[in-house]
């Protein structure tokens, strides 16, 4: 068990650094940061001065190692746009995004899992069809459009929730719903197929032949097996919530990391974009590691090889 977790942990670290390298290369090869800082109309001399000042004239590997060395000490460089340390920019805004991501995940769980389970237990019933309809529609609705519809609806027709800003919990209700709904199809479908598969397993037949039925059968024999794949998909979805916050935060004017990301991209602020990509990747990797550990704790086939 401990060995398994350590292996997974090493792999996670390796992934995190690969991702940082990929992001660094993509951003720095595809663009000329010096030009970006100086602006479109800057003269060649100005660009060269900036290049020298920010150390952008050094070869890529050196710059990557320099950046990585800083990262290990918690220094992600200075923002070209805000002229502040990137780490402090991110720290200032991380709370809003955490609140948004976790409340969105809560929305996903509350809608998707009960719906998926009900559909699985009554295949081809009206509830199954309803659940399928919800999944297919939620998958097809552009997230930003859903957000705008909510704003139009709640600002004009029924103004019970505020549609802009992040000062109270009520501000997070609509954004969390919009962001959470995007994960409903995946989680619901997996809950449904997972539970259907488990209910058709041979060991469920065994349990029924011992006289278990209904809720007892579900609780004693099905849930633990069915929950395994759901844990993994929830981890993936939570990781994606951070990336998805770009759209939601910009629509609902929440001052979190997503909005910071959009602003820094439009401002060609490479250090900030780089750190955000790295932070989001770390969150994703950490969530998956957590899911692996949870799965190992639940499933003896992983725990005791």
């Amino acid at each position: 068990m401990l060995r398994y977790i350590m292996l997974r942990g090493c792999l996670a670290i390796l992934v995190a650094f690969t991702v940082s390298l990929a992001a660094f290369l993509l951003l720095n090869v595809a663009s000329d940061p010096a030009q970006a800082i100086a602006g479109e109309d800057a003269t060649a001399e100005v660009v060269e001065t900036i290049r020298a000042r920010y150390g952008l004239d050094r070869p890529l590997p050196v710059r990557y190692l320099d950046w990585l060395g800083g990262v290990v000490q918690g220094d992600f460089g200075e923002s070209y746009y805000w002229h502040k340390p990137v780490a402090s920019l991110v720290a200032d805004r991380v709370d809003e995004t955490l609140t948004l991501a976790f409340s969105a995940l809560a929305v996903t769980i509350l809608i998707a899992i009960p719906l998926g389970a009900l559909a699985a237990l009554n295949p081809n019933s009206w509830i199954d069809r309803f659940a399928l309809g919800v999944a297919v529609s939620a998958q097809a609705i552009p997230n930003f459009w859903l957000g705008l519809l909510m704003i139009i609806f709640f600002a004009v027709t029924i103004p019970i929730f505020p549609v802009s800003g992040d000062s109270t919990w009520r501000h997070f209700v609509l954004p969390a719903f919009v962001l959470g709904s995007s994960s409903v199809p995946a989680v619901m479908r997996l809950t449904r197929t997972g539970l259907i598969e488990v209910m058709g397993a041979d060991y469920i037949r065994t349990a029924r032949s011992k006289g278990f039925r209904g809720w007892q059968l579900l609780r004693r024999h099905a849930l633990r097996n069915a929950i395994l794949p759901v844990i993994s998909v929830l981890a993936v979805q939570l990781g994606q919530k951070f990336g998805g916050s770009v759209i939601t935060e910009s629509i609902f004017a929440i001052n979190g990391l997503g909005r910071l990301a959009l602003e820094s991209i439009l401002g060609a602020d490479i250090p900030t974009v780089q750190m955000l990509i790295f932070v989001f990747a770390i969150v994703f990797v950490a969530m998956n590691l957590l899911a692996d550990i949870l799965n190992a704790a639940i499933d003896p086939r992983i725990r005791i090889g």
Binding site: A201, Y203, R224, N225, P300
Partner: peptide
């Protein structure tokens, strides 16, 4: 009581 053909899958793997 009943026993089945597939001993490999007839017992619940997580208990």
């Amino acid at each position: 009581g009943m026993i089945f053909q597939e001993p490999m899958t007839s017992l619940n793997p997580v208990y």
